[in-house]
Design a protein around this nucleic acid. Sequence first.
RNA 1: GGGCGCGUAGCUCAGCGGAAGAGCACUCGGCUUACACCCGAGCGGUCGCAGGUUCGAACCCUGCCGCGCCCACCA
Length: 848
Amino acid sequence: MSEFTPNVPERPSLDGLELKWAARWEESGVYRFDAPGDRSAVFSIDTPPPTVSGSLHVGHVFSYTHTDVVARFQRMRGKHVFYPMGWDDNGLPTERRVQNHFGVRCDPSLPYDPDCTYPEPLAKKGERPLVNLSRRNFVELCEKLTEVDELAFEELWRRLGLSVDWSMTYMTISRRVQRLSQLAFLRLVRNGEAYQAEAPTLWDVGFQTAVAQAELEDREHPGAWHRIAFHAPGGEKVFIETTRPELLPACVALIAHPDDERYQGLFGSTVTSPVFGVPVPVLPHPAAEQDRGAGIAMCCTFGDMTDVQWWRELKLPARTIIGRDGRILPEAPAGLDGAEGREAYASLAGATVHTARERVVAMLRESGDLDGEPRKVVRPVKFYEKGDKPLEIVSSRQWFIRSLSHQDALLDRGAELEWHPAYMKARYDDWVRGLNSDWLVSRQRFFGVPFPVWYPLDEDGEPVYAEPIVPGEESLPVDPSSATPPGYDEGQRGRPGGFVGDPDVMDTWATSSLTPLIVCGWESDPELFAQTFPMDLRPQGHDIIRTWLFATVLRSHLSEDAVPWRHAALSGWILDPDRKKMSKSKGNVVTPMHLLEQFSADAVRYWAASGRPGTDTAFDEGQMKVGRRLATKLLNASKFVLSIPEPAAGAEVTEPLDRAVLDLLDDVVAQATAALEAFEYTTALEVAERFFWLFCDDYLELVKPRAYADIGGDAGRESARLALRTSLSTLLRLFAPFVPYATEEAWSWWHTGSVHAESWPTSAGGGDASSAELVALATTAISAVRKAKSDAKQSMRAPVEKVRVLGPREQLDRIGLIAEDIRAAGHVGVVEFDATTEALRFEVTLPE
RNA sequence: GGGCGCGUAGCUCAGCGGAAGAGCACUCGGCUUACACCCGAGCGGUCGCAGGUUCGAACCCUGCCGCGCCCACCA
């Protein structure tokens, strides 16, 4: 480029930049990953695949921007940035959305219909009966809907300016990912790290599926304490207290602490439950707390996890009374043998837990075994995080991945990671230390990756779970509900001596925990894998440390004997102005596309970049306005610098002010680089921004007359022109990761290539202190002149008769170096110096 | 109950051992050959509280108060 006046528009604007540049970036492939053949030249990012179940919100925009800033920085540093995007379309949210959207329901017993005509979306809820679909048809419909969602997501991400390589996009429900997920699972089965077991499991009666420890949350739930009498053989009453009287027929023991003096005489004896008349032992166990309730608890199968512990450790019988639908089972459990007890139970059969509770309380009241009235309490109860009814515990057969036996190794893996911010590691450590069961990965749902397993049926038609049939790896992915296992034909499905497919699907996390393996080409592209794994960065929310982060570390540990990445960057929440977490349910979400349209992508990115790693950040349109101003200013400042003729060949930066400013900028580059290397993008933006405003407000004003050649002669003019272009080039590159559109636009006015493919500015080591001081002196001087004009309510263009500079000799000497710039910029007649022993000050004399 | 983080200007936040900072808001002024979607000047703070360490503390230590989050318990 050697044109004097580059291609600068008359009135630069942010409007329309997104569409213009997003299209050109796609065309030119500037963000395309090309494998360099060398792991050290790659920066690979394990981007979170957003759940495709509706819409992205500002929280997504916030955290994905952080990652993009880092990606762009690394790219400019010369790294081959491996930055794919995925969509998590697996799981409950999609299932639920499809059911509501199309008015359908999955019936796994139906056969697959290859010519199915799918229903149109419902115009309004309940306008027609639900349409039943086979599992495979249901899954196809899910895929249809998620495709549409994914396009909308991609459009938003492109507009935001994420420098993702869109040619590598993956979907967690795709055949490729299903294959990989099943393959990884079968490998775990083979080496004993995945197993199935029949055990009491936390169960959501609404969704009718088992849930894992990581998916629990506590909610305040109203209940009541009931004081209930059991009967000892001698006729005396033993009172227990419970919030779940409906579990009385499931009671298998009373438990008190071994040291509790009140119950010493009862240990080993048998008491009889009221109403149901079931004899149960009174047993000691250290998990019983003396100062809680009556100090003696009724152990039921199962009211809570302590019941499970007692049941297991004291080898108690199981008296299950709650079914998977949350209702009381029709058949009374073994042990409930008395006629009266059976009659009482019959009155509960089929009732919901809530109704059963009322009936049991009524019966207790009638028999006189309810002591006093129930006392209402609100106490925390375990819920499935997506559910709306308290969890029950039912016994069921489930698949688990071993994690308890790897606790120490997982803590070591956590220590291998660099955490940003560092204190987030504590959450991981807490979680790993607090694990109380292996990872339950099976879900009794439909839309997800099926377990690639069948079971032979014995002559009675009962599955032989101990001898699962697995497919060959080459046949993956398989859906055992429609595929036939090796050695069988389809006619044997469900028949004695035949087979049955595992009906369950894997939990979403069981697949998304494999994202590093999915994107890096595990078991499919060894060359790519060698260049990208272990990955450099996992960015994610701090709320899913116990799920996604933990599970990914576990799977990588089991599969690759390695950490999945070197750095984990945890982003915070977006808080609404009331300091609450922004969420859809609170109805306070602002749609991201609207924000991008209103403020521009650069502005929204600027706001996002103001949130430090791990820190919850307020949603702040004010910050977006500031960002918009910055981006506009970059365009205008660029226009101005480029409107000044290019420096002549052989020009040199000779003027003290010019040298000092470049020195200062060099220091800014050093600071910004160090900050970005440590994922402290906010600090990088701050130092760049502080310099930029000083550059615009003070340096540009001071240097204008010289650059226009009004003063200073040839050398001064060329020095100014060279310093201006040099600064602008550096500044545009410094801001490119943050405001990619404005910087690209301005860059395009005087360069042919993309700024995002340029190299990151390098620092010569930072300026010395005297440069910073000289710039500070220049700022102080020009401010003093401005203040005088401002106090006199005059225009900045108004002439100044005289400026007297008073202060220490050394400072006067330094100001002397830049006095001519100050004089010209301030429209000052003469500048005089008077050495004193006092602090530096300026006397500004305006004309009469 | 355990852990983590945070309390600095009206608001959003930097600063984390050497003279209290920025932006926004507010007040006053200015069409200045890049930008009026702009520019300039100004107002504004017992750095949560109380002790301690230090020549020196917003910063380090101890205790307390308040807010948020994570985990556990849930008879």
